[in-house]
Every structure is written in C-alpha cells, then in structure tokens.
C-alpha cells in the first residue's frame, strides 16, 4: 500500500485533482460506451421482434 490512510489516498500529494479528474472522465466515457453498446443492441432486437410479431399476426 502506497498510502497510509484513505484521505491521503484521495489527496495523492496535491495531485489528487488531476488523477481523479482523469480517471473520472475515463470512467464516464467508458461507461457511456458500454451503455450505448448495450442499449442499441436491446433496441435493435426489440424493434426486429416487434416487426416480426406484427407480420405474423397479419
């Protein structure tokens, strides 16, 4: 462990704001990517399925 306690870990020797903002942005961007991937996947499946059901009932 490179730090003695949790607040030291957050401050990171005066560089905390840089480290945490870089990681925050990265986490945000990666999370957006995952969300976008899964949401379009679900949406595509659902719309295809709806269209199929509509055609079957006709």
């Amino acid at each position: 462990m490179a730090f003695n306690n949790f607040s030291e870990f957050l401050i990171m020797g005066a560089h905390g704001i840089y480290v945490w903002s870089a990681y925050g942005f990265s986490a945000f961007a990666l999370a957006w990517l995952v969300w976008n991937t899964l949401a379009t996947r679900r949406k595509t499946r659902n719309s295809l399925r709806k269209r199929l059901l509509r055609n079957q009932n006709r």
């Binding site: 462990m1 490179a2 730090f3 990171m12 020797g13 005066a14 560089h15 480290v19």
Partner: peptide, 13 residues
Amino acid sequence: LAFAPADYQQGNS
C-alpha cells in the same frame, strides 16, 4: 492507484 509506489520525479500524478 493504491499500491504501486509513487514516481520519484512526478509524484502521484
């Protein structure tokens, strides 16, 4: 983030 030693020049950044 938590366990690797800090760099002797750049510190924690």
